[in-house]
Every structure is written in C-alpha cells, then in structure tokens.
Simulated assay, not measured.
Amino acid sequence: MRSLKKKRRIQIILVAAVALVLSTALIGYAMRDGINFFRSPSEVMAAPPAPGEVFRIGGLVEAGTLVRGAGSEIRFAVTDGGASVPVSYVGVLPDLFDEDQGMVGLGSYDGTTFRATEILAKHDETYMPKEVVDALKEQGVYQAPDAD
C-alpha cells in the first residue's frame, strides 16, 4: 500500500516539474521579441547589431538633417555627440519632434541606416528619456535644462 502512495507522489512531482519547465520555456519564447535593448549612436557605430535585430536608439536629432521625403517618409540623423546614425521613418512624427531635441526610435539597423518603426519624442521642454541622458553624459555633451 505504501509503494502505491509513493509512486503517486513521484508522478505528481514529475508532472509538476515538467509543467514548470514547459511554462518557463513558453514564457521565454513569448518574450524574446518583446525585449528591446537601448543603444546610443556611438554604440551602434562601434559594434553594429545584426541585420534585423530590433532595438531602441536614442539621442538628439542632428541639426540640419531633417528631410521630409515623398509621401510620409522622413529622414534625419540621430547623434549623441560622438557619432551620428542616419534614420529613415515612414509615418507621422510626434508633434514635439524637432531638430536638436531628444528622441528614441524603435527599429533595426541595416548596416547604413536605422529603419525606425516607431519614433518617440520628448513630451515637454525638460523631459528626455533616461537612456538618452545617460548616453549624452557619457559623450560629455549633455546640458541640464535650465531651471526657471
């Protein structure tokens, strides 16, 4: 009689372990595309990511590079003071998007141009994403906003 209870316990433990491993694997598989790493333009130029790898890039929109193409295509360069990466985006830009302003873009790098699928801009005069501030500080070009 004891051996039957012991076998049942072992079976339950094995089924629970298999379920735990399977659920962990499924969660990891589901999240693989949802994790987007942040890179500064200097990091992209120093160690270009693999083609098709989706990541976020951030910095300042370089002055004089904002060009609106045919249709809704927009081209500009993003810089952190150390390097500049050309960006191509098809879509509507946020209202506060402008040259010499902070931005973060989501997309992939094809070896020459960052192809953005989403562009985020600052939401007021003083906000800049933490990753962008950190990257600009590393390059020594960050200037804190003036306090009124």
Rank of each mutant, 00 (worst) to 15 (best):
Arg2Met: 14
Ser3Met: 12
Leu4Gln: 12
Lys6Trp: 07
Lys6Tyr: 11
Lys7His: 10
Lys7Ile: 15
Arg9Ile: 14
Ile13Pro: 00
Leu14Tyr: 06
Val15Gln: 11
Ala16Phe: 13
Ala17His: 07
Leu20Tyr: 05
Leu20Asn: 06
Val21Arg: 02
Ser23His: 05
Ala30Pro: 00
Met31Gly: 04
Arg32Trp: 03
Gly34Ile: 02
Ile35Pro: 01
Ile35Thr: 12
Ile35Lys: 06
Arg39Glu: 12
Arg39Tyr: 15
Pro41Phe: 01
Ser42Leu: 11
Met45Ser: 12
Ala47Glu: 13
Pro49Leu: 01
Pro49Glu: 09
Pro49Tyr: 08
Pro51Phe: 06
Gly52Glu: 03
Val54Gln: 11
Phe55Leu: 14
Arg56Ser: 09
Arg56Trp: 00
Arg56Leu: 15
Gly59Trp: 10
Leu60Pro: 07
Thr65Pro: 05
Arg68Pro: 05
Ala70Trp: 00
Ser72His: 09
Ser72Lys: 12
Arg75Tyr: 05
Ala77Arg: 15
Thr79Arg: 12
Asp80Asn: 11
Gly81Glu: 04
Ala83Leu: 06
Ala83Trp: 09
Val85Tyr: 08
Val85Gly: 07
Tyr89Asp: 01
Val90Ser: 08
Val90Glu: 01
Val90Ile: 08
Gly91Val: 05
Gly91Gln: 05
Leu93Ala: 10
Pro94Leu: 03
Phe97Ala: 02
Asp100Thr: 00
Gln101Thr: 07
Gly102Arg: 02
Met103Leu: 05
Met103Trp: 05
Val104Asn: 01
Val104Ile: 10
Gly105Lys: 02
Gly107Cys: 02
Phe114Cys: 02
Phe114Lys: 04
Phe114Trp: 05
Arg115Asn: 14
Thr117Gly: 14
Glu118Ser: 09
Ile119Arg: 03
Ala121Glu: 03
Ala121Asp: 03
Lys122Glu: 07
Asp124Lys: 12
Asp124Glu: 12
Glu125Ile: 04
Glu125Tyr: 06
Tyr127Val: 06
Pro129Asn: 10
Val133Cys: 03
Asp134Ser: 14
Ala135Arg: 06
Leu136Asp: 11
Gln139Asp: 01
Gly140Asn: 09
Gly140Tyr: 10
Gly140Asp: 10
Val141Cys: 09
Gln143Met: 13
Gln143Asn: 09
Ala147Asp: 03
Asp148Pro: 15
